[in-house]
Amino acid sequence: MNEMLSIKNLRAGIEGKEIIKGFNLEVKAGEVHAIMGPNGSGKSTLSNVLAGREDYIVSGGEVSFNGKNLLDMSPEVRAREGLFLAFQYPIEIPGVSNINFLKTAINEIRAYKGIGPMEAKDFLKLIKEKQALVELQGSLAGRSVNEGFSGGEKKRNEIFQMAVLEPTLAILDETDSGLDIDALRIVANGVNKLRSADRSFIVITHYQRLLDYIVPDFVHVLYDGVIVKSGTKELALELEEKGYDWIKKEVVEA
C-alpha cells in the first residue's frame, strides 16, 4: 500500500511559540489513525497546520500528501487535492447558503481537476443522498452555513460536507466534543459509511468514547507536541482507564 500522508519531524507553532516539536506520522490509504492527547498537547495545532491555516507557522520538517509537498499548498489547493478538515468549531456564515457554498466548492474542485461544472440535477441527487447519510434534515442544507445550528447539527453538517466532497484524507478535529450520545452515533455512522480502501482518516480526540464507534487501526498519544506512544485500539482503552497522567509520568521517567 502507498503512503497517503507522510509527516516527518514537523515543527510548528503560533505567535512565536512552538507547539508541535518534531512530529512523525505515516498514514496509508484506507487506514484510520486516532490521535489522542491531553489539553494543550498540540492536537488542534496539528489539524490547523495540516489544513493550511496561515497564522500557524511551520518551522521545520516535511509533509507529503499523495507524493506532493503539502506545506507548499494553499488551503484551497489542499482541499482540492483531497484533504478535508472537520472543524472542532464550525464557523457560522450568515447569508451564505449551505447548498450554494457546496456547489461552488464542488465546481472549484472539479475545475482544478479539469472537469466541467456538475449538472444541477446530479448535484441535487448527490445532496439528497448524502443528507440521508448523516440524517441531516433538508431544511438545514438550505439554510445559511451553520447559522443558528445546534452543536450537534454543526458537527453533522461537517460530516455532510465531507460526504459531499469525498476527500481522500479526512481529519476529524474533536468532532465528538459537545455531542450527546445520539448525535455521536449519527456522526460516527456517517463516518463509518464513508470508510473505504482508498480513503483515510485521522481522528483527533480527547476521549476514548468516539473510538467505540469509529474503530481505529492505530492509536497515537500526542504529548507536548510529539507522539509519545503508538499502538492499536487497546491503547485507547488503557488510556481511558489509567488517564493521561500515566503517559505524562512515563514521558518524565524516560
Binding site: P90, I91, E108, V145, L165
Partner: peptide, 20 residues
C-alpha cells in the same frame, strides 16, 4: 479560512462572503 478549507479559491470565497 473555512470556505478555503472546502476548496473555494480566496477570490471566490471573498466574493461569497461580501455578497452574503
Amino acid at each position: 479560512f473555512y470556505l478555503r478549507a472546502r476548496g473555494l479559491g480566496i477570490e471566490s470565497a471573498r466574493k461569497l462572503l461580501l455578497y452574503a
